[in-house]
Amino acid sequence: MNIFRLAGDMTHLASVLVLLLKIHTIKSCAGVSLKTQELYALVFATRYLDIFTDFISLYNTVMKLIFLGSSFSIVWYIRRHKIVRRSYDKDQDTFRHYFLVLPCLLLALVIHEKFTFREVMWAFSLYLEAVAILPQLVLLQRTRNIDNLTGQYVFLLGAYRALYILNWIYRYFTEPHFVHWITWIAGLVQTLLYADFFYYYFESWKNNVKLQLPA
């Protein structure tokens, strides 16, 4: 474990907890894309298949349980909670996320580390995580209102992935055989997707104006 990875995990934890707390306290999910949350729940479900078979560390297991629990809770709140679900604008959150799932699944069937169910699911979860934010970014551009919690959520998610890239660089130089091309490329693509959001986020923060994404 290195400082970049710990910071990345804490930032990732903060992003899901910020969102869960927002939805739980103000009983509203305005501005939140259910599609992105469903994709993230799928990412964790396919990524953490080994949670009960491979014990790596207490930290690893606890964090996996938190990520699984929080992502499925957020989906439950938006779909089932009698008050929260009313604030979900489904006619704006129309990104056809199946168009993301299928290509990621096909890609995972072609490019993976080993052709086993676990490895294909693991590669699928990495490809899906790279694009899972798209419905949320599209929704932000459509509704143009970025309330600061949703903006923070996207910002923290981007920061977590950027910190992970530093972690991979650090591990590459400190651990002789640490090479995971699939993880690195998927992580880089994901971070680049956030790059333009970061630009507008910092611009609005610097000029102290409300964050406006170009249509």
Binding site: H12, T174, F178
Partner: peptide
Amino acid sequence: IEPTSEKDEL
């Protein structure tokens, strides 16, 4: 250094 098992990242 901890043994870098295959998938030790989240």
